[in-house]
Design a protein around this nucleic acid. Structure first.
Lengths: 213, 213
DNA sequence: GTCTATACTACGATAGAC
DNA sequence: GTCTATCGTAGTATAGAC
């Protein structure tokens, strides 16, 4: 930000990460700039200086999500773009890789703040949603639609898109319905074994749906 | 509540419905009891009188969700309990009916407040989540597990439960990823035709997953 | 660039009139 | 049972020191 290397993170980044946690958990109105500043070890007025105010910080959170998720998917998306799959089998493999990456991320604690932030925007989209959608969702989904049409050649475009939503939903529930998943799987928390079983189940279901009858 | 018939809704009910909207959109901390009272056409102190305070009103919202969803599912659950399916074909039909009811509800505007309220509780469960889970989620899921084991006899119990989460996720995304679904389907909003196509796609996917290879 | 101090608004809770 | 009035607290924004 200021071009100076620092042993600790930039204040801007610390503010954004603390903000994401608070905005995710409490919502825009519920989050307090005082608390966000305190969690970042700085004064509240730093938010005004760096982001112009609470709203600017909120939008910066959206941009942060775009950057982090974009980076996570860069290699997989790049692989599909430079070497588009030609057979149903390879298309399916690429798509399963995308979905599994998504599911594993959703099982990590880091995704909690992201998911809450994004879900709120999904119900009541603001400018932040446009940044999220154009920044990561659309690029990812449109990248996936091509291979899906190859894996399921009998489906028309709209049906393909509906199927994509099915697949995304199967992964999303791991995060958005987390407490319910934990209780339904009859465990105390999502330990390694349970997570692996859920990912394996998801993969099996997705594979079935991505294979022509 | 007071045993008196009234042409307009009880004040308690009006307060709960207004609260659900505000808690859903803004979260517990973000919602304002003043605004909730104003939206209900009453004074803020009515909340203290009827529910003891903001926290009591919040819990009353959870109970309201349990009551509404429970009523919606009563006939389907009752049918499964009194006449448990014996063949894979009938079990699948019963499950598809449950899922389609769920999906159609998630496509209605009413589900927006419910979904936001519940999703927040899923990430950071409080006493309200226990009421939601024990009140509707567990009864519904456990009712569905039986027929699922009949539709997919080769699956063990844990795999069955994981599959149930897959199916629920496919429906959930229609609400929780709504803005993304709209844009991905390349429409301006979720009109009747698009909704029908999404439900049909969901049904097809669910049917595939509930049929043994 | 980061701090402290402060102005102004809105919050939840409660007391007391009716 | 519902209202108005008020108290103490906490919110964002902003001005100005350093």
């Amino acid at each position: 930000m200021n071009g100076q290397l620092s042993s600790r993170q930039d204040l801007s980044l610390r503010l954004v990460e603390a903000a994401l946690e608070q905005f995710g958990r409490l919502g825009f109105e519920g989050a307090s700039t005082r608390d966000i500043a305190r969690a970042s070890g700085t004064a509240m007025s730093s938010i005004t200086y760096h982001f112009g105010g609470k709203q600017g910080l909120y939008l910066a959170c959206a941009d942060h999500i775009v950057a982090v998720i974009g980076e996570m998917y860069a290699p997989l998306v790049e692989a599909i773009r430079t070497d588009p799959p030609r057979t149903a089998e390879t298309a399916r493999m690429r798509l399963l890789a995308l979905l599994e990456t998504f599911a594993r991320f959703l099982l990590t604690p880091r995704s909690a703040d992201f998911a809450q932030f994004i879900t709120r925007e999904q119900q009541h989209p603001t400018e932040a949603f446009d940044r999220l959608y154009e920044g990561v969702m659309r690029p990812l989904i449109e990248t996936a639609i091509g291979p899906m049409a190859i894996a399921r050649p009998s489906l028309d475009d709209k049906t393909c898109r509906a199927l994509a939503m099915n697949l995304i939903g199967m992964a999303l529930v791991l995060r958005l319905g987390r407490a319910c998943v934990v209780r339904t799987m009859q465990v105390d928390d999502l330990d390694e074994d349970t997570a692996e079983m859920l990912v394996a189940g998801l993969r099996r279901s997705a594979e079935t749906l991505l294979t022509e009858a």
